[in-house]
């Protein structure tokens, strides 16, 4: 096995090994037979590994955290979703400064889209907290399985062809320049189909708020495939946008009492430290292999959420 393959396997096995005791304890011991401190420690380890894997695979931490922790840990789904949003927010805030400084994320592209998505996220958060948990689990399962479909089928484009900017993106000056150091050239970009993009971002906001996930996977697809932003700009702007959109939804969860410190804080610290480590691992780990592991994990987590929603 190569060094890169070995690291991938270690990360995957680590996640399984740390999650398995949680499942066993939750299902067999009622979730509270173990000493209380085991749970935050386990949560920290799982989220630290999730932070590494998620960033390497190009997905937000919450899309893995909510179905995995919601399915394997004994916490109520309300608290898992509250922590999930805080995780997505933390990863975005940790990565945001560098993405903005280097020009990979674009503030002017993000701001109008984030405003629409924020309004959707607040609506989604209230809807998610008002609906029966089983319905939300079922919806989450379907959404996660949809994410797997998007990850398997989408053929993203590094530099989509945008013949000309639309009137709205032109008025909002949603364009920019960045330096691609791999290709050693200056990339000028613009976007089109902005009204459609805005409508889709309203829907993405609802999903993010309802399920407590960042929905970065959907942001990237809309920015890149619909609006025609270069892939790097799409990924970076999507990550940064989560810091705005998830702020709106997370306040709904805080105000409804759906944030429990013992679940949220170890998770936030774990995922932030994990995302710092992942940046250093980028050079030695095969992101393609990590992506495959994440797709399998999402498939299993999505199926588990779906079955839980059906009461199975």
């Amino acid at each position: 096995m190569t060094r890169r393959g070995g690291l991938t396997a270690i990360l995957a096995v680590g996640l399984i090994l740390t999650s398995a005791p949680a499942l066993a304890a939750a299902s067999e011991l009622g979730g509270f037979a173990l000493p209380w401190w085991i749970w935050p420690v386990l949560l920290f380890v799982v989220t630290f590994l999730l932070g590494i894997v998620a960033v390497l695979a190009g997905v937000g931490g919450a899309v893995l955290f909510v179905p995995i922790v919601g399915g394997l840990f004994p916490f109520h789904f309300d608290f898992v979703r509250g922590a999930g949003l805080l995780i997505a927010l933390s990863v975005a805030i940790a990565a945001g400064p560098a993405l903005l400084r280097t020009g990979m994320a674009n503030l002017r592209l993000a701001m109008p889209l984030a405003l629409i998505a924020s309004i959707g996220a607040i609506g989604g958060a209230y809807l998610g907290l008002a609906l029966p948990v089983e319905w939300v689990q079922l919806g989450l399962g379907v959404t996660i399985l949809g994410v797997v479909g998007v990850m398997l089928r989408s053929r993203k484009s590094d530099f989509p062809d945008v013949p000309r900017a639309d009137v709205l993106s032109d008025a909002l000056r949603m364009n920019g320049v960045y330096i691609d150091f791999v290709r050693r050239r200056k990339i000028e970009w613009r976007v089109h189909r902005t009204p459609l993009g805005l409508a889709l971002f309203a829907g993405i906001g609802v999903l993010a708020g309802m399920f407590g996930i960042g929905a970065g996977w959907a942001n990237v697809a809309v920015l890149n495939l619909v609006m025609g932003a270069p892939l790097k700009v799409s990924v970076a702007t999507s990550t940064f946008m989560l810091s705005i959109v998830d702020t709106a939804a997370v306040w709904v969860y805080i105000n409804q009492g759906a944030v429990l410190a013992i679940i949220a804080v170890p998770s936030i610290i774990g995922v932030m430290l994990g995302s710092f480590v992942s940046v250093r691992l980028l050079a030695v780990v095969s992101t393609a292999q990590i992506r495959r592991v994440v797709i399998v994990m999402l498939l299993l987590a999505g199926l588990r959420a779906f079955l839980k929603g059906l009461g199975i």
Partner: peptide, 13 residues
């Protein structure tokens, strides 16, 4: 702290 695990499976409400 030792009481929290008995309550975290409750809904937020």
């Amino acid at each position: 702290l030792e009481e929290v695990p008995r309550r975290w499976s409750l809904s937020a409400e």
